[in-house]
């Protein structure tokens, strides 16, 4: 049994009085796609920068690909691919020149590891003489991914690869990640988009430098035990404020086309529907619904 791809043990990092990371502990298994889900400022990027040996932690220890991040950082750098939050490309160089430069950086050529990156590279190959600065967000993202894969790393670190990218490019990107996983890569990926969590094998919810929960996406969702309802109708804002005044409603918040209601055990949906209709709201639909990652995150943020 090989060691886990990443082992994190009580990693902490402070910036002055601010605890950016507060005792983070989790493991990423071999061949796993592990998602780190949390908003801006949760500490995701700081954790990434510590794991890729860019900065030192203030406490705790971690191993990447079986090597210690403090003592073996030079060896680790050979084995990992890192794609930072802002796509780190040279905008004044062409697609091809960017790739060749990053290949030289890792002492390889594009041809050597062509198999691994071919599915991604083929999508940007038609634009290979275009300057990277002139590419669309989705294209930049693919190029940056190619550059971080060029040396066939064992462990891939993707820090918010889909931030600021439109929904289509985002789902294409996840398809590519799952292809890479089949080729044996272990991937740690962070995202502020909760809807992407379901694509991961396991996820950790992180906020304010602390892990809120770690589980499979289904496991996380199944831990949501409170009754959850979705309510919709005309004048959604009015419904929101009216529902909140009800006694048995623990929380009510907008959730896409409907508002989600976190209810207590004594909640009576029929009663609420009646109340709302009596208050003049039309087309009220009120149904029990299944919690999503975001519902869990909201609940955990409140209890934090």
């Amino acid at each position: 049994m090989r060691q886990d791809a990443i082992e994190i043990n009580g990693i902490s990092k402070n910036y002055g009085a601010l605890k950016a990371l507060d005792g983070i502990t989790f493991n990423v298994g071999r061949g796993e796609v592990f998602g780190l889900i949390g908003p801006d400022g949760a500490g995701k990027s700081t954790l990434f920068r510590i794991l890729v040996t860019l900065i030192d932690s203030d406490g705790g220890s971690a191993k990447v690909d079986g090597m210690d991040i403090l003592n073996d950082y030079h060896s680790i750098r050979n084995k990992i691919g890192y794609m930072p939050g802002k796509f780190s490309l040279y905008p004044d160089l062409t697609v091809e020149e960017n790739i060749n430069f990053f290949a030289a950086l890792f002492h390889v050529t594009l041809e050597q590891n062509y198999d691994l990156i071919a599915p991604i590279y083929k999508q940007i190959e038609p634009f290979k003489t275009r300057r990277a600065g002139k590419l669309s967000g989705g294209m930049k993202q693919k190029l940056a991914l190619c550059c971080s894969l060029i040396h066939k790393p064992d462990v891939l670190f993707l820090d918010e690869p889909t931030t600021g990218v439109d929904a289509v490019s985002r789902s294409e990107f996840w398809d590519m990640l799952l292809e890479l996983q089949k080729k044996g890569l272990s991937i740690l990926v962070s995202t502020p988009y909760m809807d992407e969590a379901s694509k991961c094998n396991r996820i950790a919810l992180i906020n304010g430098g602390k892990i809120l929960d770690i589980n499979t996406p289904d496991g996380i969702v199944n831990n949501f035990k409170e009754p959850l309802y979705a309510v919709s109708g005309t004048n959604m804002y009015g419904i929101l404020t009216a529902t909140r005044q009800e006694k048995e409603v623990v929380d009510c918040y907008p959730f896409g086309a409907a508002h989600h209601i976190v209810a207590s055990e004594n909640f009576n949906p029929e009663f609420l529907k009646q109340t709302l209709e009596e208050r003049g709201f039309k087309n009220i639909e009120l149904n029990k619904t299944k919690a999503g990652i975001e519902d869990v995150f909201i609940k955990l943020m409140h209890t934090q």
Binding site: P39, D40, P192, P254, I298, M301
Partner: peptide, 14 residues
């Protein structure tokens, strides 16, 4: 709301 946490994002929409 890019990058904003789910709770604050909703407060924003309210």
């Amino acid at each position: 709301t890019g990058g904003v946490d789910p709770v604050t994002r909703r407060q924003f929409w309210e």
